[in-house]
Design a binder for these strands. Structure first.
Lengths: 221, 221
DNA sequence: CCTACCGATCGGTAGG
DNA sequence: CCTACCGATCGGTAGG
């Protein structure tokens, strides 16, 4: 019964972090390593330092546990601020800055891709609407601010611009994760900058491009 | 013992297709629907119309069965020819034609993405080197032919050009699969053409681009 | 190619 | 929050 002055009174002494947090973290690590069906509740409980039955005091079932992991560990919480923090005197500079910041953020979360894959394949995308409902409005606002920094942009629907930028970035990240080190050695170290450059200016030399697909021209049903 | 003239003599009458083929097909359908750990050998056997034990006469184990499915059902067998069949009078036209042909091919195989996801997450990418060893040389040759159709291309390392083109295309396909119909309604019907157009000419208006990141400028270690 | 079986493990719950 | 248990199912194999 010795007094421990610096410890605030608690009804139950918490071991390390909150049990729910430890479960979430263990589940996250196992899910991204082995997938949803490849991770058992028993193993998750063990890695969280808790008995199997105890997990069900915090989460009603395995599916709900994954949903919680997906929404709490999805890196959009870091990626959106990265875009919001980007800026520059021209649209070009702002786009380049955003890509750099996104890459730096993603390099701390290489397992994010796995989280998305599990969601799409094993959960059949049931959590995607909830995720995009949070992401898309914020992303849209951030992109608008980024591209409003100057004129000089071709006339594109903002959703298309946004989707193309996000696609360009993630296609770089995903291929970087999938290709072997030997294959990646064939790429220059500034490949991301070149991706951004293609996004900004294209692969065709200036003044050489053919007719733009204006409205009324081309396949149109 | 009635004579059946049109049936060639066989030691064992094959029910429908070859048993190995039926197993492969059942495994493919189940894997892409529920993932690797979410598909049992029992269920695969049942869907193939065979007893569990019979599967092991054709495949030594579950992992090897997935490997066989992955390599035999991967749509690169259709995607590469689609690129090889593309052409045009200018690089622009050839790139547009390739994208169109790829999209038409992919629309017949919407589950291909799942196959790749399972490979990356649940199989830890162990079959990727074998796959890329087959794909990359053929893809490289096809892209070279495509871009040799005319000049007018900016000076880019061919692997970067190839990776950016493939990334542009698949980022379109994957987002098309992940976004909800309501979200997709915000995009114009010619969004793929616009993706290709950004790939060709960029998002920045002509004559407005800033200094290109020439060698010697920018972060370089 | 099937039947019958192996030990192991699954998600989940009762009861305390 | 744990112990002990439920029925179901897992990948794989023996033996024919």
């Amino acid at each position: 019964m010795a007094r421990r002055p610096t410890v605030p009174p608690r009804s139950t002494p918490p071991r390390q972090a909150d049990a729910a947090q430890r479960i979430l973290n263990a589940a996250y690590r196992l899910f991204v390593a082995h997938g949803y069906h490849g991770s058992s509740m028993r193993r998750i409980a063990a890695e969280a330092g808790i008995a199997l039955g105890g997990v069900y005091n915090h989460f009603p079932g395995k599916r709900q546990l994954f949903t919680a992991v997906f929404l709490e560990y999805h890196p959009y919480r870091e990626l959106i601020p990265a875009i919001e923090a980007a800026g520059g005197n021209t649209v070009e500079a702002a786009v380049r800055d955003a890509a750099e910041r996104l890459l730096a953020t993603m390099h701390g979360r290489p397992d994010f891709i796995n989280l998305m894959f599990i969601e799409v394949v094993e959960m059949h995308g049931e959590n995607l609407p909830a995720l995009f409902a949070v992401i898309l409005p914020r992303l849209s606002t951030a992109m608008q601010r980024l591209t409003a920094a100057g004129s000089g942009l071709r006339d594109l629907p903002p959703p298309v611009f946004m989707r193309a930028f996000v696609g360009m970035f993630f296609s770089y990240v995903i291929t970087e994760q999938m290709l072997s080190p030997e294959t990646l050695a064939a790429f220059p170290p500034d490949t991301l900058e070149r991706f951004v450059d293609i996004f900004l200016h294209g692969v065709v030399e200036d003044g050489k491009q053919g007719p733009l697909p204006a409205a009324g021209i081309g396949p149109q049903r």
